[in-house]
């Protein structure tokens, strides 16, 4: 895995002369664009339908996010041409998604596990909520 990563970074840093795969850009047929567009519309309709049915709480969010993620990958791979471009650009995009996930994970690591040792400290316990409501009324 590390070897592959190293090659992506090194290959991308083509110094001036190493003109690789010619300058003629990769042109996709029109059909692909409209196919991707169709899929996106279908997925949008799917999310709307799923939400109107009203699934139980935890699955609703997961389904919505999965469908949104599929739509996002479609846009990124085809419309943003990442599928046919230098692998290094996808590496940058994936790194930024990784750091976003990192930010989410470590912050929720704190928020969800508050008050495990001393229950008073939890923000979701009964008196935690009471204190917050009363504090906001003032």
């Amino acid at each position: 895995m590390f070897e592959k990563l190293r090659n992506i970074v090194l290959k991308s840093g083509s110094t001036a002369q190493a003109g690789h795969h010619g300058s003629e850009p990769h042109v996709l047929p029109l059909k692909t664009y409209f196919a991707v567009f169709g899929a996106l519309l279908l997925l949008t309709i799917l999310t709307v339908v799923v939400s109107v049915i009203g699934l139980p709480q935890p699955t609703a969010i997961i389904v919505a996010m999965v469908v949104a993620a599929i739509k996002a990958t479609l846009v990124v791979l085809w419309f943003m041409h990442l599928k046919y471009d230098d692998r290094f650009y996808s590496l940058i995009f994936i790194i930024s998604i990784l750091f976003l996930a990192l930010f989410f994970i470590f912050t929720s690591l704190d928020v969800f596990t508050r008050g495990q040792v001393n229950p008073e400290e939890s923000s979701f316990s009964q008196d935690g909520l009471l204190l917050r409501q009363e504090f906001m009324k003032k």
Binding site: F99, L102, F106, L109, D110, V111, F112, T113, R114, G115, Q116, V117, E121
Partner: peptide, 22 residues
């Protein structure tokens, strides 16, 4: 460097698990 920011918050009411990991 992106994984360690919690060490500024050991006493600030951060949860015990998060403090240990940071």
């Amino acid at each position: 460097g992106f994984l360690v920011w919690g060490h500024h918050m050991f006493t600030s009411g951060q949860s015990e698990l998060a403090s240990a990991v940071f």
